[in-house]
Design a protein around this nucleic acid. Structure first.
Length: 709
RNA sequence: GGCGCGAUAGCUCAGCUGGUUAGAGCGUGCGAUUCAUAAUCGCAAGGUCGGGAGUUCAAGUCUCCCUCGCGCUACCA
C-alpha cells in the first residue's frame, strides 16, 4: 500500500448525556491519541477529530427528568467531556459538537444528496405510539411499561434496564407515555428508511477481501478478527432498511417539506459529525477539509469500542459510498470492553470510576494523568475484554515507570552530574551495536503502533529502558571510575546512556505526554516537535549525535515517586481509599430490597373481568421448544380436554420438574402460533421484582377444569 | 437457539501463513552489584497450550463435538 499523504483519525463521538469512564478512555480515545501523536512525531499530516453527539431522545429524556432543557444537558456534558479529555492529554485537533449550525447544514446536505440521487431511501408508513394529550409521537424512550421478559414495570420502549433485553415499544405490557402518563395510541406516521441491504454485496467484498470496486483498498488481515467476524456475521444474517427519521423535536430537521416535525435519527446524524468536525477544523486553520475526506491519498481510521462496530464498518461506510466521493476507513480498530476489578462498569451500582472523577480524586497525585494512561495501555482490551485493577495500577507505576524508566533516567543523570558536572562526555554511539539495537526497538515500536498493537508497542518502549539498565549494569562505570576517573569506557558508557535517554524522551510522548515534557526538561532540551521521531531515526541511521558531547543536562529529579513508598504513604492511601470504596459497594449489595411495584393498570369493569375464563389444570407433559431459550411446550389437562400451551418459562423451570404441577390457565385466550406450535391459552404466573416466577395454583388435589371466580 | 470472538506457566498476556527442547513481564527461589526512587543485573524452578475425537511425517496453530467467558441476535408470564 502506498504511503498516505494525509491521515484523518476519529474517536467515537461521546453521547452528551453523561460522563465517560475509564473503559471509554481505554477503548476509543487513548489508543487514538497514541496513534495520532506517533504520526505527528513522524512528521505526518494528521487531523484528529472528535466531538459530542448531542441529539436523540435519551437527551430530551434526561432533560425532562432533571427539569432542565436539553440544551443545558448537552452544554454541561459537552464541556465536561471536552475539558476532561484535554486534561488527560487526549490531543484532539478539534472537539466539535453536533448541535452546531455547521453540523446541521452538513447533515442536511448529506441527506439531501442521497435523497435527490434517488434509490437510496424508501418511505414507509408505520404505526407508532402517539400521546394524544401532548399531541406528539413518542420516541421509544418515552414509552414505559412492563417488560415482557422479566416483569420490570419500568422498562423503556427500547430496552429493559433490569434484564437488559432489547425491546420494541409494542412489546411492552401496559405501555404508558412518559409525558402524560396515559396509555398512548398507535397512529400511522411516515418515515424514511436507508436501503442498507442494497449495499450488502460490495460491503462483503470490501470487508472480506479489502477490495472496493475491484480495486485494493486495504489489507483485510490487518483488521481485528472480532471486527471482521462481527461484520460478516451481520452480512450473513441479511441487512435491513434502517429508519433514518424520527418523530421528535430535538435533532436536525429533515430537509423535506413533507417532513415537518421530523428529525434525522440520531444514528444518521452522529457519524456525519466526523465530517462537520473536520470542516470546522479546516475553517479554523485555513485548510481544505475535502483533502482529508475525499482525496485518495488520504487515510481514514475510526477508533471505537466494540459496541460501535456495525455502525462504523457497515452503516456509515454504506452512507459514505452511497453519497459518493468519500473515503472509507482503511481500518476500524475497535477495542473490546474494559472491566473494573472483575466486573462491568456500572454507574448505578457505584462500580468503576469516571474520568473526571479520577482526576478529581487523584488531584494531588503526581503524574496522575500518565499513570492512568500507562495502566490503561498496559491493560488495553485490544482483542478481548480486559480488567482494570488498582493493584496492577500500583504495580505498573512502581515497577515499570518508577523502577525501570524513572530510575534509569535518574541514575544516568546522577552519574553525569557526579562525573562530568552535568556535561555530556565525548563518546561513540552511532556506529556501535547499541545504536543498531536501539534503532531496531524504535522501529519495532513504530510498527506496532501502526498495527494498532499498543500493548506491544509500550512493551517495546520499556525494552529500551531495560536495554539501558542492562548496559549500564554490565559496564558498571562506577567500578571503573573509582580507579580511573578519565576512563574512556566510562565516558562511552555514559555517552551511550544519555543517547538512550534522549531516545526515550521522544518516543515516550505518545504514551506519556506529561512525562515527556519532564524528561526533556531534565535533559535541558526543548519539547519534541512534530517530526522529531523521524529526525531521531534519521540520526540513529546516519550516526549523528542525539545529544551532543558538551551539552549540559539538568539536575536529577525523581520522575515517579513510588506509590508503595514507606516514607510517604499518601499516594497509597488514595489507592486504598478506592479499594475500600469498592469493598463497601460489595458489602452493601446484599440487602437491596428497593422494591418497585408496578403502577396499577387502568380500571376495568366487571364485564371485562368476566370475559376471562380461567380454569384449573395440571401439566401432563413438558418439553423444551427447540431453538428457543424461554419456551416450554406443555400439555395441560383441563379435565374436559387436554391442550397444548406454549409458555415462556424455560429459564425458570426444568421440564421434568413441572410434570404434575397444578396450574391456572387462561383458557379462552385466542390461539397463537409460537415457533410453529399452536398455543391455546396462557399459564398464570406470579412474578417478583427479580423477575422470578411462581406457579399460581389451587389447593393441592383440586380437580381440573373448574373456573376461577 | 443462531452467529462472532476468546479460553496458553500462580497472575497478566505473546505465539504470523502447522515444523527443532511453547515465550515475555509480574510473583517465587538463589546469586551479583551499589550510580540510583530498598532501585538494577544474572540464573533457576514452574505449562498433559479448556476437554474429547480426527486430518497430517508433524498441531497451541487445521476440522468436528463438548464445556466455560464476552458480545450481537431470535423467542409473550
Amino acid at each position: 500500500m502506498r504511503e498516505p499523504k494525509r491521515h484523518l483519525v476519529t474517536s467515537a463521538l461521546p453521547y452528551a448525556n453523561g460522563a465517560l469512564h475509564l473503559g471509554h478512555l481505554a477503548g476509543a480515545y487513548l489508543p487514538a491519541d497514541i496513534y495520532v501523536r506517533t504520526l505527528r512525531l513522524l512528521g505526518k499530516d494528521v487531523v484528529f477529530v472528535c466531538g459530542s453527539d448531542e441529539h436523540g431522545a435519551a437527551i430530551t429524556m434526561k432533560a425532562k427528568l432533571e427539569g432542565v432543557t436539553p440544551r443545558e444537558i448537552i452544554d454541561k456534558y459537552h464541556e465536561l467531556n471536552k475539558d476532561t479529555f484535554q486534561r488527560l492529554g487526549i490531543s484532539f485537533d478539534i472537539y466539535h459538537r453536533t448541535s452546531s449550525a455547521l453540523h446541521a447544514e452538513t447533515a442536511q446536505a448529506f441527506f439531501t444528496e442521497l435523497y435527490t440521487q434517488g434509490g437510496e431511501f424508501e418511505e414507509r408508513m408505520t404505526e407508532q405510539y402517539f400521546d394524544e394529550e401532548f399531541q406528539q409521537f413518542l420516541a421509544d424512550r418515552y414509552i414505559v411499561g412492563t417488560c415482557p421478559r422479566c416483569g420490570n414495570p419500568e422498562a423503556y420502549g427500547d430496552q429493559c434496564e433490569n434484564c437488559g433485553s432489547t425491546l420494541s415499544p409494542t412489546e411492552l405490557i401496559q405501555p404508558r407515555s412518559v409525558l402524560s402518563g396515559k396509555a398512548p395510541v398507535l397512529k400511522l406516521t411516515k418515515h424514511w428508511y436507508f436501503k442498507l441491504e442494497k449495499h450488502a454485496d460490495w460491503l462483503r467484498e470490501w470487508i472480506e477481501k479489502g477490495e472496493l470496486d475491484g480495486v485494493k483498498h486495504h489489507d483485510p488481515k490487518r483488521w481485528k478478527k472480532h471486527v471482521t467476524g462481527q461484520c460478516l456475521s451481520w452480512l450473513d444474517s441479511g441487512l435491513q432498511p434502517r429508519a433514518i427519521t424520527r418523530d421528535l423535536d430535538w435533532g436536525i430537521p429533515v430537509p423535506l417539506e413533507e417532513a415537518k416535525g421530523k428529525v434525522l435519527y440520531v444514528w444518521f446524524d452522529a457519524p456525519i459529525g466526523y465530517i462537520s468536525a473536520t470542516r470546522q477544523w479546516a475553517l479554523d486553520h485555513g485548510k481544505n477539509w475535502e483533502d482529508y475526506w475525499k482525496s485518495p491519498d488520504s487515510q481514514l481510521v475510526h477508533f471505537i469500542g466494540k459496541d460501535n462496530i456495525v455502525f462504523h464498518c457497515i452503516v456509515f461506510p454504506a452512507m459514505l459510498k452511497a453519497h459518493g466521493d468519500y473515503l472509507l476507513p482503511v481500518n476500524v480498530p475497535a477495542n473490546q470492553f474494559l472491566n473494573f476489578e472483575s466486573r462491568k462498569f456500572s454507574k448505578s451500582k457505584g462500580w468503576g470510576i469516571e474520568q473526571h472523577e479520577y482526576l478529581e480524586t487523584f488531584k494531588d497525585f503526581p503524574n496522575k494523568e500518565d499513570t492512568l494512561r500507562y495502566a490503561l495501555i498496559r491493560n488495553m482490551p485490544e482483542t478481548r475484554d480486559s480488567d482494570f485493577k488498582w493493584d496492577e495500577f500500583v504495580d505498573f507505576h512502581d515497577k515499570e515507570l518508577a523502577d525501570n524508566l524513572g530510575n534509569f533516567l535518574n541514575r544516568v543523570i546522577v552519574l553525569t552530574q557526579k562525573y562530568y558536572e552535568g556535561r555530556v562526555p565525548e563518546g561513540v554511539f552511532a556506529e556501535d551495536p547499541h545504536a543498531t539495537a536501539i534503532r531496531g526497538l524504535v522501529k519495532d515500536l513504530v510498527y506496532e503502533i501502526e498495527s494498532f498493537s499498543f500493548k506491544d508497542a509500550v512493551q517495546k518502549f520499556l525494552e529500551i529502558s531495560t536495554y539501558g539498565n542492562v548496559f549500564l549494569q554490565d559496564t558498571s562505570p562506577w567500578a571503573i571510575w573509582k580507579d580511573e576517573p578519565d576512563s574512556l569506557v566510562v565516558k562511552d558508557c555514559l555517552y551511550t546512556c544519555l543517547q538512550i535517554v534522549t531516545v526515550l524522551s521522544v518516543i515516550v510522548e505518545p504514551f506519556l505526554p506529561f512525562t515527556a515534557k519532564k524528561i526533556r526538561a531534565q535533559l535541558q532540551l526543548p519539547e519534541a516537535k512534530a517530526g522529531a521521531l523521524a529526525e531521531l531515526l534519521e540520526r540513529l541511521e546516519s550516526g549523528k549525535a542525539l545529544l551532543p558531547a558538551g551539552h549540559l543536562v539538568g539536575q536529577p529529579e525523581v520522575l515517579f515517586p513510588k506509590i508503595n513508598d514507606r516514607k510517604d504513604g499518601s499516594r497509597m492511601e488514595l489507592v486504598e481509599a478506592q479499594k475500600a470504596k469498592l469493598a463497601a459497594v460489595l458489602a452493601a449489595e446484599q440487602p437491596e430490597p428497593k422494591t418497585e411495584y408496578a403502577t396499577l393498570k387502568d380500571l376495568i369493569s366487571y364485564d371485562d373481568f368476566a370475559k376471562m375464563d380461567i380454569r384449573t389444570g395440571t401439566i401432563l407433559e413438558a418439553e423444551k421448544v427447540p431453538k428457543a431459550d424461554r419456551l416450554l411446550k406443555l400439555l395441560v389437562d383441563l379435565g374436559f380436554e387436554k391442550r397444548t400451551i406454549v409458555a415462556g418459562i424455560a429459564e425458570h423451570f426444568q421440564p421434568e420438574a413441572i410434570i404434575g404441577q397444578q396450574v391456572l390457565v387462561l383458557a379462552n385466550l385466542a390461539p397463537r402460533p409460537l415457533k410453529g406450535i399452536e398455543s391455546n391459552g396462557m399459564i398464570l404466573m406470579a412474578g417478583n421484582e427479580e423477575g422470578k416466577l411462581s406457579f399460581v395454583t389451587p389447593e393441592k388435589g383440586w380437580p381440573n377444569g373448574f373456573g376461577v371466580k
